Deep mutational scan, measured.
Amino acid sequence: MLSDEDFKAVFGMTRSAFANLPLWKQQNLKKEKGLF
C-alpha cells in the first residue's frame, strides 16, 4: 500500500480525487503505473 505522499507522487492527485474518478479511469491509471 502506498503512503499518501507516494500516492500523490505516483498519480499526481490525492486519494480523494482519485476515488472520485470513474472506476474504469482508476483501473487505467493503475495499469499505466504498473500497479494492477
Rank of each mutant, 00 (worst) to 15 (best):
S16N: 11
E5V: 09
K25L: 14
K30G: 08
G12M: 04
D4L: 03
S3Y: 04
K33E: 04
K33R: 07
G12N: 06
A17Q: 14
E32W: 07
Q27S: 09
K8H: 13
K30Y: 15
A19H: 13
A9V: 12
Q27F: 10
K30W: 15
K31E: 10
K31Q: 11
Q26E: 01
L29V: 05
A19D: 12
G12W: 02
L35V: 14
Q26M: 02
K33G: 07
S16E: 15
M1T: 12
N28R: 15
K33V: 14
G12F: 02
N20H: 10
F11E: 01
F18E: 00
F7I: 03
A19I: 09
N28Q: 15
Q26F: 02
R15V: 10
L29G: 01
N28F: 14
G12I: 01
L2F: 10
V10K: 07
G12S: 02
R15G: 04
W24C: 09
S3W: 04
Q27P: 01
G34Y: 07
L35Y: 15
G12H: 05
W24M: 04
K31T: 11
K8C: 06
F36Y: 12
G34A: 08
A19R: 12
M13G: 00
Q26W: 01
Q27A: 13
L29H: 03
D4F: 03
M13S: 01
M13P: 00
L29R: 03
F7H: 01
P22D: 04
Q27T: 12
K25A: 11
K31M: 12
F18D: 02
M1K: 11
D4A: 05
K33Y: 10
K30V: 15
T14R: 01
G12V: 00
E5Y: 09
V10W: 10
F11L: 04
N28M: 15
N20Y: 06
V10E: 05
G34M: 09
Q27W: 11
K33S: 12
A17E: 15
F7S: 00
A9H: 12
W24L: 06
P22N: 01
R15C: 07
G34T: 05
N20I: 09
S16H: 12
L29M: 08
F7N: 00
D6H: 09
F18W: 05
G34K: 06
M13T: 02
F18M: 02
Q27G: 05
P22I: 02
L2N: 06
F7G: 00
A19E: 14
A17I: 05
A17T: 08
N20K: 15
A9F: 10
N20S: 14
P22R: 01
E5K: 10
A9K: 12
D4V: 03
D6M: 11
L2P: 08
F36L: 13
A9P: 02
K31I: 13
A9W: 07
K33D: 04
R15T: 06
K8S: 07
W24D: 09
N20M: 14
S3N: 11
W24A: 06
K8R: 09
M1A: 12
A17D: 15
G34V: 06
L35R: 06
L2Q: 06
A9N: 12
Q27M: 13
E32V: 06
P22E: 04
M1I: 12
L29Q: 02
P22C: 01
F18G: 00
M13I: 09
E32K: 06
S16R: 11
K31W: 13
D4S: 05
S3K: 06
L35H: 12
A17L: 05
V10D: 02
P22W: 02
L2I: 10
K30T: 11
L23S: 07
S3F: 04
D6K: 07
S16I: 11
S3P: 04
A17K: 06
K8M: 14
K30P: 02
K31P: 03
E32H: 07
K8Y: 15
V10L: 15
L21Y: 03
F7D: 00
N20L: 14
V10M: 12
G34N: 09
E5M: 09
F11V: 04
D6A: 12
L23D: 07
S16G: 09
D6F: 10
K25D: 11
L23V: 10
Q26C: 02
P22T: 03
R15K: 15
T14S: 11
M1L: 13
K33C: 07
F18V: 00
D4P: 05
N20V: 10
E32N: 07
K31A: 14
L35P: 08
D6R: 09
R15L: 08
F18T: 15
D4R: 03
N28E: 15
A19Q: 13
L21S: 02
F11Y: 10
F18Y: 05
R15A: 10
K25E: 14
N28L: 15
N28Y: 15
K31G: 07
M13H: 03
K25G: 04
L35T: 08
N28K: 15
E5W: 06
D6P: 02
D6G: 10
R15Q: 10
K33L: 15
F11N: 02
P22Q: 03
T14N: 08
T14Y: 04
F11S: 01
A17P: 00
K30D: 04
A9C: 13
K25S: 05
D4M: 03
A17M: 08
D6I: 09
T14V: 04
F7A: 00
A19T: 07
D6N: 08
M1E: 14
N28C: 09
F18I: 01
M1N: 12
F11A: 01
R15W: 08
L23G: 10
L35K: 06
N20Q: 15
A17C: 07
L29W: 04
F7T: 01
Q27L: 14
Q26T: 01
A17W: 03
T14W: 03
Q26D: 00
A19K: 11
M13A: 01
S3T: 12
Q26K: 03
L35E: 12
W24E: 09
M1Q: 12
M13Y: 08
L35Q: 12
T14H: 04
F11Q: 00
R15N: 04
D4G: 03
K8G: 05
M1G: 13
M13E: 02
P22F: 02
K25Q: 14
L23F: 11
E5R: 07
L21G: 00
K25M: 14
M13L: 08
W24Q: 08
S3R: 05
Q26I: 02
L35S: 11
F7E: 00
N20C: 15
P22Y: 02
N28A: 15
K33T: 11
K30R: 13
G34R: 05
Q26N: 01
L21A: 01
L21W: 02
K25N: 06
S3E: 06
V10I: 14
A9M: 12
F7L: 02
A9T: 13
L2T: 06
M1C: 15
W24I: 07
S3V: 04
S3I: 04
E5H: 10
Q27I: 15
G34Q: 08
K31N: 11
S16M: 12
F18P: 00
K31F: 12
D6V: 09
E32I: 10
F7V: 00
M13F: 05
E32Y: 07
L21T: 03
L23W: 11
N28G: 08
L29P: 01
K31H: 11
K8N: 11
P22V: 01
G34E: 10
K8L: 15
F36R: 06
L29S: 01
L21K: 00
G12T: 02
N28I: 15
R15P: 10
K33Q: 09
V10P: 00
E32D: 09
A19F: 13
R15Y: 08
P22G: 01
E32T: 06
